[in-house]
Structures are given as C-alpha cells and as structure tokens.
Nucleic acid binder design. Structure first.
Lengths: 200, 200
DNA sequence: CTCGAATACTGCCCTGTGCAGTATTCTCAG
DNA sequence: CTGAGAATACTGCACAGGGCAGTATTCGAG
C-alpha cells in the first residue's frame, strides 16, 4: 500500500497538524469546516485515521471513557513532512456538482413552472447557506476561537464562500426573472440569448 | 431493481429526449455539455443507457458499422414521463470539491510561497476555463447549432458558469495580494481578517 | 498504403455514499 | 434520583462512481 494518499487523507492529516483528535471529533470537524469545499460522508472519515497510522503519518493512543473505546490520533514528524510536500503540489481543478443545473439544462422537457420552482429553490438554499456563513463569522471571537491562530487563513476561504453563495443566489433570481418573459419553456419569444451573455 | 434513477441516469435520459444517440456519442456529449455542472467519467456513461433500457425508459437498436457494434438509444414515452416528473422534484444543493482550497486551509503547515503558487494556479486555471466558455459562445451559430432550439436555456447556464469562473479568478488574485502583505503564512502581521469579510 | 486518430467498448480495483444497526455515556427535566 | 433522549463511538453492506489499462475496428490524411 504505497499508493499516494488521497486528498481526503491529506485533509485529515491537515487537521491532525492543528491538534490531536479522536475519530469521532474528526468526523464531525471535517463536515463543519472542510465540508464547505471538501465534502465527505462521516462514514468515510472513520476509515482514514487508521490508514494514516499504517502509513506512519499518525499514531493512535487507544483510551476509553468508562467502557467505551476512544482513540486519539496524533500526527508524526513524517506526517508533517508529507503534508508540507503535498502543499507544494499542483491541485485538481475545482469540480461542481449542480443537480438543479441539470434540471435547468433539460427544462424544455417540462414546464416553465417547474423551471421557476427549481430556480427559486436554488436562490433560497444559497441565501440560507450565506446566512449560515455570516452567522459563523459573527460567532467568531479572536480570543476564544479554537482556530485563533488560523483566522486569517479562514477569512480567505470564507470570503470565497460568501461570494460564491451570493453569486448562486443572484444568478438564480436573474434567471428566474429573465425566463419569466418567455412565452413558454421551449420558446423564448423575443428574448435574445446573446444579450444575456454580454461580458460586462 | 425498482430503485430510483440517479441524477446521472436522468442526465442521460435528458439527452435522449433531445435526440437519439449512440453510447459513444453520449459519453462524449455528457463531458462536453453537462460536464460543466455534472461531471462524470466516460466509463460510467457506458453503464447508464443499458440500465435505462431495463427500466423501460429507453430502447436500443443494435446496428453496426462494418464489423463494429453500434448501439443507438432512443427515449420511450415512459422515459419522457419520468423525466418530466423528475423536473418537478427538489434538487440536492450544489456541492463543490475544491482541492486547492484544502491546501489553502492548511497553508500554515507550509510556506507563503506554496500558498502563492496554489492561488496563482487557481487564477490561471479559472481564466483558461472562462476563455474556453467564451470561445464556445463565439462559436455558437443560431442556424447550424445542434441545440439551436435550446440556446436560450443554454445561455442561462453559460451565464452562471462565466460568472463562476470569473469569481474564482478574482478571488484567487485578491487572496494572493492580501496574503502578500503577511510577514509569514502563520502570522498575518497587522492584517485585519474582519476587513476581508465586510459585506459590501 | 500506411499510420495515427477516432470509434466502441470491457474489466478491475479502488474511493466514496447512504443507511441501518449496535452499544455506551451524558444531560437535564420532572 | 430517575428515566428519556441526545451525544458518543463506531461497523457492515450494497451500490455509485473514478481511473486506468487493455482490446479491436474503422476512418482519414499524406
């Protein structure tokens, strides 16, 4: 098993570089913080730390709370080196999975009402996530935050995600109002598609 | 196998609603058009059409070019009904997988130079994809385009993707110049993270 | 006529998801 | 002090999906 570590592996290694974690904490923390740009099912995150141990990138301390198991994982020096090396490698381009856009793309097989419903949901969901991000910013306190020495880096990521959710919301509202002028979903009437694609 | 169709299944069904396709064409077409918002490996797309046939949503005509097999898939009436029903269902929120953002998030385990390299790549890749999209717009001709009656819908999707790539590029350039003022990757000096998160 | 590109797939192993299931410990309302 | 529900701490299983290698045929340009 000298296959290269996956991005998910490096993501967990990155968290271990901040402080030691139990698997359970790790599984929750990945979803809270990295979940915004590297979403992974909780299930998967239970497999990753033991794999890091077999690779010598982390160590495990098996403890317990009463009768219940509780494994604490710590990064090793080799783990820090591997992480640092990885930070210098080139990255895969971002990939977007956007189910509502698939529905929009095939909207002419349905009704204008269905398209409007899809776009309204996109706008509402994006706004909900934007408010969730803003609440996280509000709740951040320089003195008590767990990641206090990492707040400047967090801010760069948050700036992107706030703007990204805002873009989603604005686009969905724009698309809804543009398509509202169409006689039907497969006939845009006098609507000129090139006007919608002008580079401003 | 009365499990619900996956989004990938509906995506292929949607293409079949436009016109009949061979598996090979389908595999290429999904990557060219839907690939921007529903990326799937070519390999996977060879499994989908036969599955649609077993569900009665498509039919297959086994033909050949010389000695080589060539299966043409067509949507059925049941397929069109299934597609139409699906267009009215709610969608999963968009998910973003952004490896470079994981690298940014753990940038304090590396150097400022590594962070700048990551951000430069993000900006360059985003600009390359934006130009690719603009070239697609330029090349579109109302009279000959294969998807001529669908250009208005295409334009809504393209507007999003152009703005999305522009956002990626602008964000990466902004993050690079902001972080350029930091004394080191784990010390932002006098840089105030709250200023970066103001809502304008 | 030849060689490389395009066509047309299949097998295999791995990553990752979703869901159900199991069991223990903590917390707080009554 | 007690009982119920939330949080902790996982595992198994089936299925979706990705990456890569491999196979073979046909087309088109020089």
């Amino acid at each position: 098993m000298d296959k290269p570590l996956t991005t998910t592996g490096y993501a967990v290694l990155g968290l271990l570089a901040v402080r030691p974690w139990t698997t359970y904490e790790l599984a929750k923390q990945v979803q809270r913080s990295l979940g915004w740009f590297w979403p992974r099912a909780e299930r998967k995150l239970y497999d990753v730390p033991p794999d890091l141990v077999t690779r010598g990138l982390a160590t495990v301390t098996e403890g317990h709370t009463g009768r219940r198991a509780r494994s604490v994982y710590r990064i090793t020096a080799a783990g820090r080196r591997a992480l640092r090396t990885w930070l210098g490698l080139s990255s895969q381009p971002p990939t977007l999975e956007f189910e509502a856009m698939v529905k929009l793309f095939f909207a002419d097989s349905g009704s204008l009402e269905q398209l409007h419903g899809t776009l309204d949901s996109v706008a509402q969901d994006a706004e909900a996530r934007r408010l969730e991000l803003l609440a996280m910013v509000e709740a951040t306190d320089d003195t008590t935050a767990e990641f206090a020495p990492r707040l400047h880096i967090n801010a760069l990521a948050l700036r992107f995600h706030l703007d990204y959710e805002a873009l989603l919301g604005r686009w969905a509202e724009w698309a809804r109002s543009e398509s509202a002028s169409w006689p039907s979903v497969d006939d845009p009437g006098s609507w000129r598609w090139r006007d919608a694609l002008s580079v401003d």
